[in-house]
Simulated scan of single mutants.
Amino acid sequence: MAKFVLFLGVLFGATAVIAGAMEHAVRGMIVADVSGADVELAGDELSDPAPNPEVAKRLAQYETGVRYHMVHGLALIGLGVVMAISARGQIMGIIAALSMVIGVKLFSGTLYLISALGMKQLTMLVPIGGSFMILGWILFLITVLLFEPLVDREDLE
């Protein structure tokens, strides 16, 4: 199970990088959606200022989704390492991982849809996703508290 959690963490890290790299394309989608027409961006730089407050808000939502996506990918890698070197807490660890996965999908995934496609009707899923992420962190803490090394220090001497 630890290997599966490590796999999920690396997968989430990779997909967060991809989502971050797509910010420029998403910026164009947001500008087109807000303006109601196909609009060319003034420049090709990612640091161009947003054309209006609505675009800026939606870009900030997208960036928040990417940030939480990446942080939880790294957390899953850490959880996988803890599970790999611990004799206890495997079930709690997998439940923590699943909670984080559901949380990221609901939180970041919904923010991606709201920001890129303007699907504001999904807004209520964001706090549900956040609650799953918080639950995942609490379960991660319990997994750490259950930690018992696979190898005793005396066995190494």
Rank of each mutant, 00 (worst) to 15 (best):
Y112V: 02
Y68G: 05
T123K: 11
D38A: 10
E40T: 12
Y62S: 07
A16G: 07
V151G: 01
A96H: 09
A32G: 00
L8S: 13
L125D: 11
G13Q: 13
I94Q: 15
Y112L: 03
V144P: 00
M124C: 00
A21Q: 10
L145H: 00
L122A: 06
L146I: 03
A21C: 01
T64D: 10
M70H: 07
V39L: 02
G20Y: 00
R67S: 14
A84E: 06
L46N: 14
D155I: 01
P49M: 04
V82L: 15
D155T: 06
A25Q: 12
L106W: 10
V26C: 04
K57Y: 10
D152E: 13
T15H: 01
S108Y: 02
G118Y: 10
E154L: 02
A37V: 06
T123I: 14
M92L: 11
M100Y: 01
L46R: 15
L141N: 04
K3D: 08
M22K: 12
L125K: 08
S99Y: 02
Q61T: 11
Y62F: 15
I77M: 14
R67Y: 10
I138L: 15
G28L: 09
G65F: 10
G89S: 05
L125M: 14
G20M: 02
A60T: 08
V71Y: 13
A32C: 10
M119L: 15
F140D: 09
A32H: 11
